[in-house]
Structures are given as structure tokens and as C-alpha cells.
Simulated scan of single mutants.
Amino acid sequence: MYELRPEVPDDHWEVEALYDTCFAPGRTALSSYRLREGRDPVTGLSLVARDESGILGGAIRYWSVSVGGAAALLLGPVAVHPTRQGEGLGALLIASSLERAAPLGWTRVMLVGDAPYYGRYGFTRLDGVEMPPPTNPDRVLGRALLPGAWDRVRGAVHPG
């Protein structure tokens, strides 16, 4: 059993250590990190999952971005500690955080990731949305939280 709660400043370094454990040391060199540098994650959507002993099992963060002038959320990173993988914790973090987004006023979410994995959460390829290079356009995915939210949204992604 996990308790999901919004990430707070006291969680920051523990979450960073989890990301370091789960991803390659060069994770901050990825193009999506240029959209995150020097900014705080979105309050209320960036979540941590702790077990009954308070041990961090997983985390997910969101960032505000602008796509061609339209506000959007950038999902990521999402990570589950290697000892907790296979328990459905990643799915819980993604589904729970997406459920919270629309009530907070967000209409669209994007990410850079694998279509087969994120497709089960309603993400599809975004044509015409340009992440900073080098990003494979086939990995730029989006999900409308309200019908039509991605219609006619095109252009470069910038910090929001």
C-alpha cells in the first residue's frame, strides 16, 4: 500500500536521488531538462509515493510549458525505485496525477517517451510540436484532457 501525496520542498533531494538511481547519470543533458532548468515543478501534480514506513517508492513531476503560445503540462520524469518495480506503482502515479490535472485547470499534457507504454494512458504522437533538439519527433506524445485541446496547437515548446 502506498500513500500518494503532492511533492513538497522537503522531498526535493530524496526525489532527485531516486531519479539518479533510475536514470543514467547524463539524464540532465536531455533536451526536456532544458525546459525544466531553474524552475519548480507544478504544485499539486508532482507526486511522491511512500510506503507504510515512509520510504519513497516512486515520484512523478510535471512542468508548465508553452506550445505555440498554448499552455500545456510536460510530464516527466516518472520513476519507481528498482526494488519496487513491477508492482504497478508507475501506473498509479501516472493515472492519479492525470486525474488531478483537469480539475486544476489544465487541458493538455505532453511528454517525450515510448508510444507503446504511454499509449495505454491515452497519449498519441503530436505532429507539429517541436521539442528542443535533439529529440526524436516520434517520441513527442500528447494527451488532451478536454476534447480537442490539442487541435491546431503547433510550434516550439518553451518553458511556460
Rank of each mutant, 00 (worst) to 15 (best):
T124L: 09
L126A: 02
W63H: 04
G105Q: 12
R27A: 08
R125C: 09
L35P: 00
A144W: 03
L45S: 06
G68A: 14
V140A: 10
L92W: 02
V109M: 00
V112L: 10
L4D: 10
V67E: 00
P137Q: 12
L4Y: 06
Y33M: 04
G142C: 11
L89F: 08
Y118Q: 10
V109H: 02
G113Y: 07
V78Y: 03
A79N: 03
L92F: 05
V80R: 12
R152N: 14
R50W: 09
L56M: 04
D20A: 15
Y117W: 12
E37N: 09
L30H: 10
R50T: 14
G122C: 07
T21C: 14
R50F: 07
P132Y: 03
P82N: 12
T124I: 06
F123Q: 04
V80Y: 05
L4G: 11
S66Q: 15
A101T: 09
R139F: 09
S31R: 02
R39K: 09
D40V: 07
V78P: 01
V153F: 03
Y118G: 02
F123V: 05
A49D: 10
A79Y: 02
P134Q: 12
G113L: 08
G88Q: 11
D151Q: 12
L98P: 01
P147R: 11
G122K: 12
A79M: 03
Q85E: 12
R152S: 14
G57S: 13
E87T: 12
F123I: 07
E52A: 15
R100E: 12
C22S: 03
A102C: 10
L74E: 00
Y117P: 08
P147C: 03
E16A: 15
S96N: 08
E7S: 05
L73R: 01
L92M: 14
T135Y: 02
G160R: 02
L104H: 10
A115T: 06
L126E: 02
T21K: 12
T21L: 15
G26L: 13
W150I: 01
V129H: 00
